[in-house]
Design a protein around this nucleic acid. Sequence first.
DNA 1: AAGAGGCCTCTTTTT
DNA 2: GAGGCCTCTT
Length: 736
Amino acid sequence: MDNNSDIFFEGLNPQQIEAVKYTDGPLLIMAGAGSGKTKVLTHKIAYLNREFNVPLSNILAVTFTNKAAAEMKERVQNLVNPAAKSHDNWILTFHSFGFKMLKMYADKLGYDKNFVVYDSSDQLALVKQIMADFEIDVEQFKPKSILYQISKAKNSFDLPEQFLQRANTDVLQVAAKVYAEYQMRLRQNNAMDFDDLLLNMVLLLKQEKEILEKYQNKFEFILIDEYQDINMPQYHISYMLSAKHRRMFVVGDTDQNIYSWRGANLQNILNFEKDFPDAKVILLEQNYRSTSNILDIANSVIINNKLRKKKNLWTNQEKGDEACFFIAQNDYDEAENAAKKVKALIEKGSTLSEIAFLYRTNAMSRVIETILLQHNIKYRIYGGLRFYDRKEIKDVMAYLKLILNYKDDVAFQRVVNVPSRKIGKLTLLKVQEKALEKGVSCFEAVDLLEEVRGHAALLSFKELIVSFQQDYAQEELSAAEIIDRVINRTGYKEMLMAESNLEARARIENLDELKKSAVEQNYSLDDFVSMSTLLTSQDETGDVEDVLTLMTMHTAKGLEYDHVFLFGLEEGVLPHVQSMDAPDEIEEERRLCYVAVTRARKKLFLSASSNRGSYGSTTPKELSRFFYEMPAELLKVEFSDRLSGFNHIVEKLSAKPEYNLTAPDRKGTFFTRDYEDESSKKVVLDYKVGDIVRSGAFGDGVVVQVFSSGKDMSLQIRFGKEMKLVMPKYGKLEKA
DNA sequence: AAGAGGCCTCTTTTT
DNA sequence: GAGGCCTCTT
């Protein structure tokens, strides 16, 4: 196969072909957005398999998301010989790789092999428990930020002792103390958190030379996707495993490094050529995805970053449409505009599945969802409130975890009194004391308890769990059957039925859904529980209906759509408030903006809102600095006709001649709006500076400034410390 | 012991 | 605006 006419190489450019064929040693592929890196990876795996007869079981290919792994797996299956399809398949995410290995060798680290994986709310519960035991003031030190510090330490490969030594502030010292205990209790509970799946794997490979050697030999080729987002434990894992064959192929784009808050360390990709001095480097700079207008917008944003490896992404695609930039009065208005544009696209022949709405924070989806529901536009939301985060699901999962692993105190605490078994706080406290005293789990401590009130209830709870354990052991029941028994025999379903309201009914439906997915997947209980914890909602296999996609900009990485809507191009949103102080964090926000823009194939719709609600109140917003970094001539700026009265964004923008503002009369009456169009009731607007007013939403305030123009009026009002811009018409104001 | 009601914090981003 | 957590009442 030394010619490019082979159908296998059809559609690949010379650099891509070189990247696929190179097998002599370490290889770094710097691949810009849309340059076909997934294609290179999948073709490479297939090439190794077909040309060199490397079995798939000897190729390790790691990605970051389950979605990417699944897609890669599927594409590889289509490229290799059907005979080569293997069950010993190692195309997976880093976390599931860690999980798979630890399932086999957890005992080497002092764990039982039936350990469970804690998700973030289990983690938080454990941290809170420890802080309570240590009598640490949770007002002064927030459990969440302590957990954040712990996770950050683990992702930087900082073990408790080192972390303590380096802890030079109050918070860090507290975190270090909790961290050490946290790790101990995880072990006691026979549980690992997400970070442990990587961390413990490193410890395993460092500690067990034989295991390390076995897998060094096994994995003749190691491929890693999104290498710019690799953290320290992941780095150690790949480095150790590739030490023997030294055939490590990594693909990455420094401009798409958006997970540094999770420990992703850009140095790892920048140091690749130092780690492997004989590394070959291939650049993929041709973008096959987007129109040149979209690419120009993306490029002119990203060039403002100081910390980057210069590269120039180009395309020979046509210019395409100009991007729309819509300026809305508020977030509802913003969503409304997007919904209208979607309808127009559909009328022109697009399908919903070719459209994505991207936003910076999950909370922003709420308003968008409201509007989409109103417009009857079907959508699917990725991330946000996950299926597995729902209370009823977590409850049932806690039962399952306890059945598998009675040492799991977090699970025990969660369900011991759900549904109510009349076991109170006091009784549980005694259980905990006893467990601590005897050094056993809560579950075991139940037997050791002297006569206390509620002891009978505790014993029967324990019996119930034991009976499930026996069912599982003797009959080898599937996950679906166990779930069914748990829901019915614990009285959980009965409890929900008794509530007989809409919410309870939805919960029952969710439980049915859980059971259904267990039936479909036909997993054992053990596998079901671990898969569910590792899976996030973005991986849930849903119907492949024609629906609009909603997700955060982070989640969108690696995906592409014909039409992409980006919401909230505002200071404080993108870039996010919490990233606005540090220059390097601004750069990460800029990369995020770059990632978001480059998701679009054909047309980009951007928007910003003059006011945005958050935490239940509304505050004025300024246009994002990234807006001004985009070439004005490539943006068609549109103003909402709901913009009214005084508007800081419009004022600012109107002063800039480079923005070709096509609004009919932007100098005067443009800002005004006739209320009577929308309302049959005529409203008398009579306010002056100094008036005391009462608002349904904000309470009492004083009018600081009046903006009026034509029939329109807005008021600047001070409510306590907060300044608001309120339109009397909409603001439900009355004079106090 | 359990439910109701009020207060408070909270929102980056995810495996 | 929502969910968690505390307190108060039954």
